[in-house]
Design a protein around this nucleic acid. Structure first.
Length: 774
DNA sequence: GAGTTTGAAACT
DNA sequence: CAGTTTCAAACTC
């Protein structure tokens, strides 16, 4: 095995040491402290020295929330300063991918890194330093450094100038110990990492690592294939450190104003989520910080998912969410690669996988790069840390998407022992996280949740012979149109919220302070489930059954059919009602509890959103939307699912419109926005639970335009419009959503390629086949 | 993980 | 429009 040291460290870096650093008192101090020999340290130090050490002002905030805010600020700065991150103009061809990356990047911004770690009350200085590192690290810093931080974090010198050196030294030392730089202590790198994760000091490490990650990757790229192993190893290490790293990494490089905005919004939203998750934690525990960070990252990566992940996945919040993010990222990568059209073998290879379904499927099976997202997903399922790492990887790749990077990503995933793991299944996944398992519908029927939700299938989907992919956009759109022709509201949200602002609603519903406005438009038709299972769409949407339902023996815990809507609020207020008997899993109860909190205190949430550090107008908008969403959800007062669907949906919408990806709203952007804005009333109409109204009022086309996006998405249209209005970045679209070109109800979806599981090619017999088969 | 149940979607 | 079939998710074991 080649020594990591050799491989990882470019000759230039290793050859000389920076006198400045070494001579500095700080350096000496470190030397003394560090168990590692100065000789080796010197190298790393030097490498680090070579990089620009721009020491940004130390972060001041310790609170996660504060961090968030700060993060936003930093992002802005970064954005201003940082140009093109993705900049390789070519890559911009497809905003979607960019979007994905941007999302991920946002959290990664230096500030973001800092923020995340600032959450750590324990060591402010460390955090500050870490922030510095973040700013600096872009340059070549071997990832190796990261490890050491945990160990030496407390010893970090306060001198900013030397901090970096110190950090690196420490890292280096750690690397030596763990990375086999020093054969002696190769063991347990992972373990340490994991441990470090838990400890505050480690936070710094994570940050550094994160930064390093990018650097590291680059270094690896520079090196020949021989280094591949080393590189992968390093990556894995990063993975272990967690999402934080990734975030930071990406953040520095990629910042668009749009991104910032989105990030802010996300941050805001995140705050809410975080709060829910760990109300107390916001303040300071490392865990709390972690959650926040995670959430942040997730949010930035994939708006809708964060919520879901947080609530649905518990410990795996991040992980759960992550999948989507990864997917997005992966897709983005693919797209970018494609758009790049580079002649590089790697690119072609990648593209080929993307477009060649067969190939892709094979690749997926083999855990090839094409299924990076899926692999990541898998990792998430089993190992959160790894998942996080994966996340980091994705952003990284996305950021510097190049053929080499692509390869690197592939290698990384391939190298991952867990890459083969089954994709994590997002329980209670919100719309943003939909994953279908279609076998015969080709994902071109409403049976397909993804399709029905107006989103492309993801790599994580287990569908077979899927045509609900960007590659088959035409087919998808055609099919969609056909369906809409039959039923203009086919893609309209099944559950709509009552317009709380509408006096009419108030009159109808009575007390609007409670979350009771959501209803299933069409109503359910349950016969056996008594509307107590998710078979029931009403129950699934966490809304009560209404007179429009034809269910039998309705016992919907969210509101029985016969039950007066007016009474729902009361019921909701009663926690007991929010925990339906049918909550079968502990998660359900937990979620329900959360939901309850949310619903009952939705106003508080709003306040919270305001309280969030985010100062941006965007964030404000986000908060507003989030609040709205929450409120809507709360109206229903549903247990956790509520969060998932509603909040998530909200998030989705928010992100969709704020998505940094497409600064210039691609096709639909402006138009959609204008439509939404101008046609906001349409939402009101749609929101009316009476299908008749919908049908009557809206022409099919119009209805489609407005609602076509996702019927399944619960988020209230109104919110969307508001969001759109509030956000300056219009035209931003969500990554997965697809919209009819003629009538874009939703932002175009991101270029997702569905690589998963096409192995069984069972051709459906549906009419759609014709379309699909082109 | 496989098989069953369920109800929406699709079809006749 | 009603009845039937198809489908995929939800659920159970």
């Amino acid at each position: 095995m080649d020594s990591p040291e050799d491989n990882r460290i470019p000759p230039s870096t290793t050859s000389s040491s920076s006198p400045t650093v070494q001579e500095s008192p700080f350096f000496n101090y470190l030397r003394n402290l560090s168990p590692i020999r100065s000789g080796k340290t010197a190298r790393y130090v030097q490498g680090f020295t070579q990089t620009n050490f721009t020491v940004p002002p130390p972060p001041v905030f310790t609170s996660p929330r504060v961090d968030l805010q700060r993060e936003t600020s930093f992002r802005e700065e970064t954005d201003a300063a940082g140009p093109d991150i993705y900049g390789q103009g070519d890559t911009h061809l497809k905003p979607e991918p960019i979007h994905c990356f941007q999302k991920e990047d946002q959290p990664c911004s230096p500030s973001g890194c800092i923020d995340e770690y600032l959450a750590d009350p324990v060591d402010m200085e460390d955090t500050t330093k870490s922030s510095d590192l973040c700013a600096q690290t872009r340059n070549d810093v071997p990832m190796i450094f990261e490890n050491r931080l945990s160990t030496h974090g407390d010893t970090i010198d306060k001198d900013d100038d030397h901090v970096d050196s110190h950090m690196f030294q420490g890292s280096f030392a750690g690397a030596q110990d763990h990375e086999k730089f020093e054969p002696q202590a190769t063991d347990g790198q992972d373990n340490k990492v994991g441990d470090s994760y838990q400890s505050i000091p480690q936070t710094l490490q994570s940050v550094k690592t994160h930064k390093d990650f990018g650097e590291d990757s680059r270094l690896a790229l520079k090196q020949s294939a021989k280094d591949a192993d080393q590189h992968q190893r390093g990556i894995r290490r990063h993975l272990q450190f967690g999402a934080t790293m990734s975030c930071k990494d990406t953040g520095n490089e990629t910042h668009d104003t749009a991104n910032s905005t989105l990030a802010e919004g996300l941050t805001d939203f995140e705050s809410l989520v975080s709060y829910q998750i760990e109300p107390s934690g916001i303040s300071n525990s490392w865990q709390a910080g972690t959650h926040a960070q995670t959430v942040n990252f997730l949010l930035s990566s994939c708006p809708p998912q964060p919520v879901m992940s947080v609530e649905s996945c518990g410990n795996h919040n991040v992980s759960a969410c992550f999948p989507s993010d990864l997917e997005l990222s992966a897709s983005g990568i693919i797209r970018l690669t494609d758009s790049m059209g580079s002649d590089s073998t790697a690119t072609q290879k990648f593209v080929g996988k993307v477009h060649a379904r067969e190939e892709k499927q094979i690749a997926v099976r083999n855990h090839s790069s094409a299924s990076v997202a899926g692999e990541i997903y898998a990792q998430v399922e089993d190992d959160q840390q790894e998942t996080q790492a994966a996340k980091a990887i994705v952003p990284y790749d996305g950021r510097t998407l190049t053929p080499q990077n692509t390869n690197m990503v592939e290698e990384l995933y391939q190298a991952s022992p867990k890459r083969n793991r089954k994709r994590a299944k997002c329980i209670n996944e919100g719309e943003g996280c939909k994953r279908c398992n279609c076998k015969r519908s080709k994902c071109l029927k409403l049976y397909c949740e993804c399709f029905a939700a107006g989103v492309y299938c993801l790599d994580s989907c287990a569908c077979t012979n899927c045509f609900n992919r960007p590659e088959y956009e035409d087919t998808v759109l055609d099919t969609r149109q056909q369906i809409e022709t039959r039923n203009p509201l086919a893609f309209a949200p099944k559950v709509v919220k009552q317009d709380t602002d509408s006096p009419a609603n108030i009159v109808e519903e009575g007390n609007w302070t409670t979350p009771s406005s959501a209803r299933h438009k069409r109503g359910c038709n349950c016969k056996k489930s008594k509307c107590l299972k998710k078979y029931c769409e009403c129950y699934q949407a966490r809304v009560g059954c209404s007179s429009g339902c034809r269910c039998e023996g309705c016992n919907n815990s969210f509101g029985k059919k016969t039950e007066s809507i007016f009474r729902r609020p009361e019921k909701w207020r009663n926690p007991s009602h929010e925990q339906p008997d049918n909550l079968q899993t502990q998660d359900d109860f937990v979620k329900a509890g959360r939901a309850h909190q949310i619903s009952s205190t939705w106003e508080e949430l709003v306040d919270m959103s305001h309280l969030t550090p985010i100062s941006h107008s965007h964030s404000a908008a986000m908060a507003t939307s989030a609040s709205l969403s929450i409120r809507d959800s709360s109206k229903v007062s549903q247990p956790q699912p509520y969060q998932e669907s509603t909040l998530q949906s909200s998030a989705v919408y928010l992100h969709s419109h704020h998505s940094p990806i497409s600064p210039t709203p691609k096709l639909y952007g402006s138009k959609i926005l204008s439509d939404i804005s101008s046609d906001n009333h349409l939402y009101d109409i749609l929101e009316d639970d009476t299908p008749e109204l919908l049908k009557n009022t809206l022409t099919p086309t119009k209805a489609v335009k407005i609602s076509s996006p996702n019927q399944k998405r619960v988020s209230p249209p109104q919110n969307r419009s508001q969001e759109v209005r509030s956000s300056t970045s219009q035209g931003l679209r969500s990554a997965r959503k697809f919209v009819l070109p003629a009538v874009p109800s939703f932002p175009p979806l991101s270029p997702y390629s569905k690589s998963r599981d096409g192995t069984q090619k069972r051709n459906g017999d549906s009419k759609d086949d014709d379309n699909s088969c082109q």
